[in-house]
C-alpha cells in the first residue's frame, strides 16, 4: 500500500459491472482503481505490471476464468490479494476459490455495501466472506467432527474389510467386489460377516448410512 491508499485492479468481462464497481470503490477515499481487465489473462498481466494491493475479479470470464487466474497468480507468489466478486452464490464455488488461494469471496447480488469493507479487509491480509458463506463452511467442518463413535468402530476394521465396506455401500455386488479385490465372492461374504460382527451392519442401507456419515464415499 502506498501512503495508506489501497491500489485496486478490476477484472470482469462486463464493462458495465466494472463501471459500477469502480463507482462504489471511488466513494472510499482510501481506495484507488488503477487498472481494468476483461478476463483472467489480462488480470495476470495487469498484476504483473501494476503490482496492485488487491485484485477484484469475476469468476466466469472468457479466455481465462477467475479460478485459473487465481491459481496462476498464487503460483507466482504475487503479493496482490485476490477478492472474487461473482454471481455464483453456491457454496461449492466458494470452497474452490479458497482452495485456489483467494482471500475473499463476495456475491454480486449482495456485495455493494460490503465491497469497500471487503477490499480493505483483504488488503490488510484478512480473509473476507459474507456471513452465509461462513455458515456453510462452518457446517462442513462441524459435519466432519461429528460421528466420533462410528469413526472409532471403523478404525477397528482391517484394510480389506474397509475396502469391502466402501464397495458394498457404493453399490457393488459380491462378485464385482471379488473381481476388484482379487478375492472370491465367498471371501467377500466372509468379510461382510466380519463387518456385521464388528459394526452391526447387515443391509446395504446400513452400509450406505455408515459410509456417508464418515464421508467414505468420496473417492
Amino acid at each position: 500500500m502506498t501512503a495508506d491508499v489501497i491500489r485496486v485492479v478490476l477484472a470482469d468481462d462486463h464493462a458495465v459491472v466494472r463501471a459500477g464497481v469502480k463507482a462504489v470503490l471511488s466513494s472510499a477515499k482510501d481506495i484507488q482503481v488503477i487498472g481494468e481487465g476483461s478476463n483472467g489473462k489480462e488480470a495476470i498481466g495487469l498484476v504483473d505490471r501494476l503490482n496492485p494491493d488487491v485484485l477484484v475479479m469475476d469468476l466466469s470470464m472468457g479466455e481465462m476464468d477467475g479460478i485459473t487466474a487465481t491459481r496462476e497468480l498464487v503460483e507466482k507468489e504475487t503479493r496482490t490479494k485476490i477478492l472474487i466478486l461473482t454471481m455464483h452464490a453456491e457454496d461449492a464455488y466458494l470452497v474452490k476459490v479458497l482452495e485456489a488461494g483467494a482471500s475473499g469471496y463476495l456475491v454480486k447480488s449482495a456485495a455493494d455495501r460490503e465491497l469497500v469493507d471487503a477490499v480493505r479487509a483483504v488488503a490488510h491480509g484478512d480473509l473476507y466472506m459474507q456471513p452465509s458463506a461462513t455458515r456453510a463452511l462452518a457446517k462442513g467442518i462441524q459435519r466432519k467432527s461429528e460421528h466420533a463413535d462410528e469413526r472409532e468402530k471403523y478404525e477397528k476394521l482391517t484394510e480389506r474389510e474397509r475396502d469391502v465396506l466402501r464397495f458394498v455401500a457404493g453399490g457393488f455386488s459380491a462378485p464385482e467386489i471379488g473381481e476388484k479385490l482379487f478375492i472370491s465372492p465367498k471371501t467377500v461374504d466372509t468379510y461382510k460377516q466380519r463387518i456385521n460382527e464388528k459394526l452391526g451392519l447387515s443391509h446395504r442401507s446400513d452400509y450406505v448410512d455408515f459410509a456417508l456419515k464418515l464421508g467414505l464415499l468420496t473417492k
Partner: peptide, 18 residues
C-alpha cells in the same frame, strides 16, 4: 440470463449504491 440480464442488474445496483 446470467451473463447479460443479471450482470446488468448488478451494474445498476452498484451505481445505485454509489
Amino acid at each position: 440470463l446470467h451473463d447479460s440480464i443479471a450482470q446488468t442488474l448488478a451494474a445498476v445496483r452498484f451505481q445505485l449504491s454509489a
